[in-house]
């Protein structure tokens, strides 16, 4: 089932392009990572789909416009958490509950889940940065929404907090929730997400299933005593997708369907003994850095 369909969204601030012609389809149960360097338009995109910012062009549909108030099914954390500093955590969550038309007796469960039940009656301004972030997650989880939108959810958290948030996202994903996660912690996204869109300067450079994105990047690092000769032979052969010389090593990307064995045989056939032969598992980080470079 299609949860979100983004159709050609554009947003400019004066001459600065925030996002340009964003096309995205997110289906139910997807854990969709939105990646991009700072200022790439991740938050702008999320702000638009949450109705906080108006797009200059394009549109978006939640549930194909079949639900009257789709935002009631969304729990979202955008950038820094924003709450009434003079109100207690309980009162702040009561406001969220009333907005979402959900029972206020779910407040304790949300606070407990984020380890803040003991601070229920504390004023929001008395919380530390990490606690504020956890409280924001409590408000996101309030009422068990079908969709979670998390913009840098681990901001300001200590290592334990980061691990807890990651576990929470995995747990929510297991429950079949649709999650949209903007983050620049790529290892985190790789571990959690099923799909990913990479943004740069407001444009989507690549999007799709995370597996296909990483697979396309599989390579082998080799070296020998005759690196220069080997490099020349590999380039001229045309048998490989990409051959790059990196310091004293050579990175070889295999063509679709070809195997590492063929590379080994190629070197043997040309009487070159390989001193290093290391398969490189694809990582989102390498792919990402390559794209945004």
């Amino acid at each position: 089932m299609e949860v979100l369909n983004v159709k050609g969204i554009c947003k400019h601030y004066g001459n600065t392009r925030a996002v340009e012609n964003i096309l995205l389809t997110i289906n139910s149960g997807n854990i969709y990572g939105i990646l991009g360097p700072n200022g790439s338009g991740k938050t702008t995109l999320l702000s638009i789909i949450l109705g906080v910012i108006k797009a200059d062009k394009g549109s978006y549909d939640w549930y194909n416009s079949e639900k009257n108030n789709p935002t009631e099914n969304i729990g979202a954390l955008l950038e820094t958490p924003n709450f009434y500093s003079y109100l207690s955590l309980e009162k702040n969550l009561e406001i969220v509950a009333r907005i979402k038309n959900i029972e206020t007796d779910t407040i304790d469960a949300a606070l407990e889940k984020t380890g803040l039940l003991e601070r229920k009656y504390s004023k929001y301004f008395t919380l530390s940065l990490g606690m504020k972030q956890r409280f924001a997650l409590a408000s996101v989880l309030l009422g068990n929404p079908e969709i979670l939108i998390l913009d840098e959810p681990t901001n300001g958290l200590d290592p334990q907090g980061i691990a807890d948030v990651r576990a929470m996202i995995v747990e929510e994903a297991k429950r079949g929730k649709t999650i949209i996660l903007a983050s620049h912690i790529l290892s985190e996204v790789q571990k959690i997400c099923t799909h990913v869109a990479i943004l740069k300067n407001g444009k989507i450079l690549k999007s799709g299933e995370i597996g296909s994105l990483i697979k396309s990047e599989k390579s082998i690092i080799i070296s020998s005593d005759e690196n220069k000769k080997l490099f020349g032979l590999l380039v001229r052969s045309g048998l490989f997708e990409k051959v790059e010389s990196i310091k004293n090593e050579i990175s070889v990307s295999l063509k679709k369907g070809s195997t590492a064995k063929e590379l080994n045989e190629f070197a043997f056939k040309h009487n070159i003994i390989l001193t290093k032969f290391e398969k490189q598992e694809g990582s989102l980080e390498t792919e990402f850095l390559k794209m945004v470079k």
């Binding site: 949450l50 109705g51 969304i74 955008l78 958490p81 924003n82 709450f83 979402k100």
Partner: peptide, 19 residues
């Protein structure tokens, strides 16, 4: 002014209040 100061108009909209 508080709503702008705390950015809670924005937060209320994120939580589901229409404009």
């Amino acid at each position: 002014g508080n709503e702008f100061n705390f950015k809670t108009f924005r937060q209320n909209a994120i939580d589901g209040l229409s404009r």
